[in-house]
């Protein structure tokens, strides 16, 4: 029972991070039917930029409260990632707007590799430690441990997602995004500048990715130029699980995937008599991806069945 509750909590924490990243995949797919494989790298840049800023701030003002230092990192990482997302769309995808579908997909994969290498050149190959700045604190809940950081991650994710939901459902831009996703041609007939809406989608998704990047590096205590790859693939799996293109689906898929992964890691040892250990954690996301693609390709909340992968 203890393990179950503990893993459930761990899963929700991880899942809320996946959800934030998955939203970026799903919003872009909803409008462009493009899987922006470079999105994981935007998340990585969020973590890296925040850590760089944190390093500088600590060097200048070592006595600042830890929370403020991290906040400074986040507040720089968000606009940097927004600019990165904007540039990715403008330079890599927009010229291919009317190209065959395979071209932007290959471009996305190439871009992902380019961004990894740029990060490696800037920050090196080594793991970068996330300094222990956030206030420690642990609580007991039903026999499981919950840390301040875990609560913070879940609460902040929920707030960000509520904000996004409000933006998409209630604002003029959100309505234009939904209209553009349903028909680009008709949205133009309404006077919507579709290029601006697409750019806004990338920028918003990248802001969420920046937040997620800082969260994941704070949670695991480190960052690395390659961290965006696996995180991106898992978030993509989460988006597919929820129904790619569907915003509520990305939130649900992210949380579910986190929980599945954590429970899987917690019990795989017992289930296989110790043959497989918790380091097989990463397998679950892709196992789920395969199951979804075989049995319910439209995802949990998806309406349309994808005609192409």
């Amino acid at each position: 029972m203890d393990i179950f509750v503990q893993q459930l909590i761990n899963g929700l924490v991880l899942g809320s991070i996946y959800a934030l990243v998955a939203l970026g995949y799903t919003m872009v797919y909803g409008i462009l039917e493009l899987i922006n494989f470079a999105h994981g790298e935007v998340t990585m840049f969020g973590a890296m930029v925040a850590l760089a800023v944190i390093g500088v701030v600590l060097g200048v003002a070592p006595d600042l409260p830890g929370l403020l230092v991290v906040l400074a990192g986040v507040l720089v990482a968000i606009p940097v990632c927004m600019l990165l997302g904007f540039s990715i769309e403008r330079l890599a995808y927009r010229p291919l707007r009317n190209a065959p579908r395979l071209a932007p997909l290959i471009t996305a994969i190439g871009l992902s590799i380019v961004l990894q290498n740029v990060a490696m050149l800037i920050w090196g190959r080594q793991y970068i430690a996330f300094p222990p700045l956030l206030p420690k604190g642990q609580y007991e809940v039903l026999g499981a441990h919950v840390s301040n950081l875990q609560i913070f991650i879940v609460v902040l994710s929920i707030l960000v997602m509520l904000g996004l939901w409000f933006m998409v459902q209630k604002t003029r831009l959100g309505r234009a995004m939904r209209a553009t996703a349903q028909s680009r041609a008709v949205a133009q007939l309404m006077g919507v500048n579709v290029n601006s809406v697409i750019a806004a989608t990338f920028v918003i998704g990248s802001a969420l990715a920046a937040v997620a990047g800082v969260m994941v590096s704070a949670y695991y205590g480190l960052a690395h130029y390659y961290m965006g790859f696996l995180l991106g693939l898992k978030a993509f799996s989460a988006a597919v699980l929820g129904g790619i293109g569907n915003i509520a689906g990305a939130m649900l898929g992210g949380l579910l995937l986190g929980v599945i992964e954590a429970l899987g890691a917690g019990y795989i040892g017992d289930l296989t008599g110790g043959f497989l250990g918790s380091h097989y954690q990463d397998v679950f996301a892709f196992f789920v991806l395969i199951l979804v693609l075989v049995f319910r390709p439209s995802g949990l909340l998806g309406e349309r069945v994808a005609t192409r992968a």
Partner: peptide, 19 residues
């Protein structure tokens, strides 16, 4: 017709007044 099928009637009309 080109309506936005997953927007409500009111939202479709609001799109008409977008600019």
């Amino acid at each position: 017709r080109g309506i936005f099928p997953r927007l409500t009637v009111a939202e479709n009309l609001a799109m008409g007044a977008y600019t």
